[in-house]
Write a protein that binds this DNA or RNA. Structure first.
Lengths: 209, 209
DNA sequence: GGATTATTATGACTAGGTCATAAATACATT
DNA sequence: AATGTATTTATGACCTAGTCATAATAATCC
């Protein structure tokens, strides 16, 4: 292998790394940082089948839109299909490839947890409820593509200092129970400062440093 | 108010709704669905200060990139800063506005949970480990902007049928413990079919229907 | 030196816009 | 019915970040 060929190989790897790191780079940006011409970069991209900038960010946006809406964006993970306040509810989450461990294709636990927690909180009418404790069990691994059905039941309300809501959530794939969780939710009201020292960034209420 | 003015108002609202629902619509798409010309749509967009398609998806991609990387995309939530396999580790997650309940600005539990779970799994060297049980406690509400520091410790390994890893995770904001969780992880090996009936979409191994 | 490969240049074309200007249309008012 | 105004549409020049095809140049190997 000649010198030029080796250089090419190295540059192509660099191109891959660069766009992976920052998919918002134009061909001109790439050309500048790699000290080659724009056509060279285009050739590299073509052979590495890296799509053009606009396509890259379009894909990025498309990919993440659904996930973010159902995960980071909204208040609720999954779609609530039944809800009786202070009693129970049902919500559904379609799992997909973006939620799995690569190796095993098994859906990561925290997606299942998030579905359960969201539903548990949705059932409580209290203005703001937070999970205080949870006791959870994953019975069966879930694979991408499964439709998770969460059923939630408010079992008890106790007042021990503050109001505590005892909520049970079971999640099924078809008829198989894959998850079971008992959540103890706490109403976030005036009692906050008693049991809960609030820790925050800008919004620090009760300092601890 | 005349007829035309009213029509305009209605159309502008429709434009807003349409791009909100599907930010990937071109002006031509919008013009067609609204039965007006492209320039009209452009005028509407200008007055509603809706950016052009490319800018919209660029913003979408930029906004969600960070979140998705740390949430849905990668295997790990948070950034691992220390890791001793089969022993312990430390990971860090910077919380932000996208992770909170709107009303209270409190970080949603499942982000904290995900940080803990990710670290617990990372510590286990086993090819694929899954959470079997977890016992968790949220001590203190966390506000956006806090830097969460998760410390994890492998406490025990027991073989009860399959290998079980007993992992403790504590999460701090500064010196305050905000979360504590005991995870029992199960190695996902040959023992899978014994204790675990596998439920999945396309990859259904042990059917239940 | 000549063949081969890699790099660069060039030109024509594209989508999905921007901005500015002009023309056409519809409506309300006098 | 005529006119003024708001609204809508049309037009043309320009932009970015590309596409594709073709050609020319440069570097390396045999």
């Amino acid at each position: 292998m000649g010198k030029r060929q080796a250089q090419k190989e190295i540059r192509r790897k660099a191109v891959l790394d660069l766009v992976r790191e920052d998919p918002f780079m134009t061909d001109e940006d790439l050309a500048e940082t790699l000290n080659v011409s724009v056509p060279t970069v285009r050739l590299d991209r073509a052979e590495l089948s890296i799509p053009e900038l606009r396509e890259r960010i379009r894909l990025l946006a498309a990919q993440t839109r659904g996930k973010v809406r159902s995960l980071a964006g909204g208040e609720i993970v999954g779609e609530i299909v039944e809800l009786e306040l202070n009693s129970g509810g049902v919500s559904i989450l379609e799992t997909d490839d973006g939620m799995v461990f690569e190796k095993t294709q098994v859906v990561r636990g925290h997606f299942i947890y998030a579905l359960a927690e969201s539903l548990a909180i949705a059932v409580i009418t209290e203005d703001a409820a937070l999970v205080g404790f949870a006791n959870i069990k994953y019975a069966v691994p879930v694979f991408a593509g499964s439709r998770l059905i969460a059923r939630c039941e408010l079992r008890d309300i106790k007042v021990i200092g503050e109001k505590r809501f005892f909520v049970w959530v079971k999640i099924y794939v078809k008829k198989t129970e894959v998850f079971r969780g008992k959540f103890i939710l706490v109403a976030l009201g005036d009692g906050l400062a008693e049991d809960f020292a609030v820790v925050g960034g800008g919004a620090e209420l009760l300092g601890s440093g």
